[in-house]
């Protein structure tokens, strides 16, 4: 009996702690669990969440993507600048293609040429930062025409639900299906779980990893469109540090960094948890920097639990 309880706590300990936290904040700050605040938090996390969806595929495939933060910056600059040049329709197309290309480049190096994912994507982070500055010439860009329908993605809403939340939810649903129920998803799990066995099963691991990175580029492009539309402009630092927050959300959900396990649902949960914790801390009056310290603590906790579960599985 006590054993089952321990197992339950190990599996859902974070969730229990999170529920306690929600209750605690709700008591102290009345505004916390009101529909408008909840929707607000969800809107705030939808950009991070959007990126985390693609990164989840990469992580389940046993790799990492640390380039998504500066990729977001570049793509946001592109979508804003191209909206001024071509109008929103073409700008969005160009942005999606650019995101795909950036992801494909990572995928080529990590998947096909088998270079170390950490190094490749860290280098990419720096490269894309440089590219952003070269592209923008160092100055911020703004959407010139304030009345364009481009504003809908970040500022619009559907039946009272903010458009970013709608886009995030739809994408999460589609990608959850892809990861769980399709051939591609199964191949991702196999490659992340045991690449050799996947190869012996006729699965081309290079291609699978390549595709995972392409997807990560694509979801980052969608995030950039939401971001550009929300801000109606872009600074050269707009996505700085996002790669870590994204990874934190993925890990917090319980997707293992070792690859071979995880799910989109978990990632959505992890990202939402991050959002509510940060929002709760603000509402309780803690200074902004406390969020960062708490996030650190949460990540260590999540990784520790993940490791504990793994060790339990191997030895116990």
């Amino acid at each position: 009996m006590s054993l089952h309880f321990a197992a339950l706590l190990r599996r859902h300990g974070l969730l229990v702690a999170f529920a306690l936290f929600l209750a605690l904040v709700a008591v102290q700050a009345e505004a916390f669990l009101t529909p408008s605040n909840v929707l607000d938090v969800l809107r705030q996390v939808s950009i991070i969440g959007m990126m985390a969806l693609g990164v989840t595929f990469v992580v389940v495939a046993g790799r990492l993507d640390l380039s998504v933060g500066s990729m977001l910056t570049l793509l946001t600059v592109i979508v804003v600048d191209r909206t001024n040049a071509f109008g929103p329709g073409l700008a969005i197309l160009v942005t999606l293609l650019a995101g795909l290309a950036a992801g494909a480049w990572n995928g080529l190096l990590v998947g096909v040429f088998r270079l170390n994912a950490l190094i490749v994507t860290l280098a990419m982070l720096s490269f894309l930062q440089g590219l952003t500055l070269a592209y923008s010439g160092g100055s911020n860009v703004n959407v010139a025409d304030g009345t364009t329908w481009f504003a809908a993605f970040g500022r619009g809403s559907l039946w009272g639900i903010p458009a970013p939340v709608v886009i995030f939810a739809l994408s999460a649903a589609v990608l959850a299906f892809v990861l769980k129920r399709t051939r591609f998803g199964r191949a991702i799990f196999a490659v992340g779980g045991n690449e050799t066995a996947a190869t012996y099963s006729g699965i081309d691991a290079r291609l699978v990893v390549f595709a995972a990175y392409c997807l990560s580029g694509l979801t980052t492009a969608i995030a950039a469109i939401i971001m550009g539309s929300r801000v109606m402009g872009a600074q050269n630092t707009i996505g700085q540090g996002y790669e870590l927050t994204v990874l934190a959300g993925v890990i917090l959900g319980g997707t293992s960094l070792l690859g071979g396990s995880g799910s989109i649902g978990r990632t959505v949960l992890g990202v939402a948890m991050l959002g509510f914790i940060q929002n709760g801390l603000l509402l309780m009056g803690y200074p902004y920097y406390v969020q960062w310290l708490v996030t650190w603590g949460i990540i260590i906790l999540a990784v520790w639990i993940d490791l504990g579960a793994k060790r339990g599985r191997i030895l116990a």
């Binding site: 191949a187 012996y200 699965i203």
Partner: peptide, 21 residues
């Protein structure tokens, strides 16, 4: 363990792995 199975996946998913199509 190395070449035959993806140890984290269930028996069902392991069996069908070479024949996803």
């Amino acid at each position: 363990k190395e070449q035959g199975l993806v140890l984290g996946l269930g028996g069902r998913d392991n069996i069908t792995l070479p024949h996803l199509a």
